[in-house]
């Protein structure tokens, strides 16, 4: 394993991150021509734009995001879904994959169900609508669900999905990663447990180089240990 220190410079809110020659990206704000960090995070610069990638923060829904939500309430023509965001999100019966009669919503989704869906729209005052019309949308059953900080989702997915694919291959699990930090895993119970541990590793301590190797080693070590313990 590499012993290199992977300490990336962290900026805190209010720290200067750039001058007037740069454009302000997410996580920054501009004042008096200078750019400052608005959140605790890592400063990055690309194509003349400086952004701060936050180390923590709530999930703020964006149109098109794939999310995993819990149904927490329902009415005659809609369901209310918790998507781990400050804003509750309704899913209208017309946006579901089924033909739902008025008042018949409980037959298709009930409180406590977990669904994979997408953010249909977010208006100016942050009112959110969900949809299940996309291809991958469905009610989830079996497997297990977990939650990580939404800011770590890109890391779990990896460049072009490389990280999540690695975990899927090594653990033989199906994995859906929601942009809202909710993750669904399906496979043999021991395997989903191992996959979940790997995801926790990425979320908790991923500020060094060679994380991919660390994840691979963790999964292989865990599978070696469980192999001696009977059927998965």
């Amino acid at each position: 394993m590499q012993g290199r220190e992977g300490l990336r410079p962290i900026v805190i809110p209010g720290e200067a991150v750039g001058g007037p020659e740069l454009k302000p990206g997410p996580g920054t704000y501009s004042e008096g021509g200078q750019l400052f960090a608005a959140q605790l995070g890592i400063r990055t610069e690309r194509d003349g734009r400086v952004s701060v990638i936050p180390l923590n923060g709530r999930y703020i829904p964006k149109r098109g995001d794939a999310v995993i939500g819990d149904v927490i309430d329902l009415g005659p023509s809609h369901w209310l879904v918790d998507i781990n965001s400050p804003y509750p999100a309704p899913l209208h019966a017309t946006e579901s994959p089924w033909r739902v009669e008025f008042g018949d919503t409980a037959r298709f989704l009930k409180v406590g169900d977990v669904i994979m869906c997408h953010v249909l729209s977010v208006d100016e005052i942050k009112r959110v609508q969900l949809t299940m019309q996309e291809r991958e949308a469905r009610r989830l059953s079996g497997g297990m669900a977990m939650e990580i900080s939404p800011t770590k989702v890109p890391r779990v997915i990896g460049k072009e999905g490389s990280m999540v694919s690695l975990i899927k291959d090594l653990t033989r699990c199906q994995i859906y990663v929601g942009q809202n930090g909710r993750i669904w895993l399906d496979g043999a119970d021991r395997d989903t447990g191992i996959a979940a541990s790997a995801i926790r590793l990425i979320e908790e301590r991923a500020q060094a180089f060679g994380l991919t190797e660390a994840v691979r080693e963790l999964i292989e070590r865990a599978r070696r240990e469980t192999r001696g313990h009977g059927p998965s």
Binding site: G6, R8, G41, I42, T44, I53, L55, N56, N84, E147, I148, S149, K152, P154, R155, G158, K159, S162, M163, G181, R200, I202, E203, E204, R205, A206, Q207, A208, F209, L211, T212
Partner: peptide
Amino acid sequence: PSPEPGLPPEDD
């Protein structure tokens, strides 16, 4: 939600 440390190197 465990807001623990972590961030990716740019390449990944």
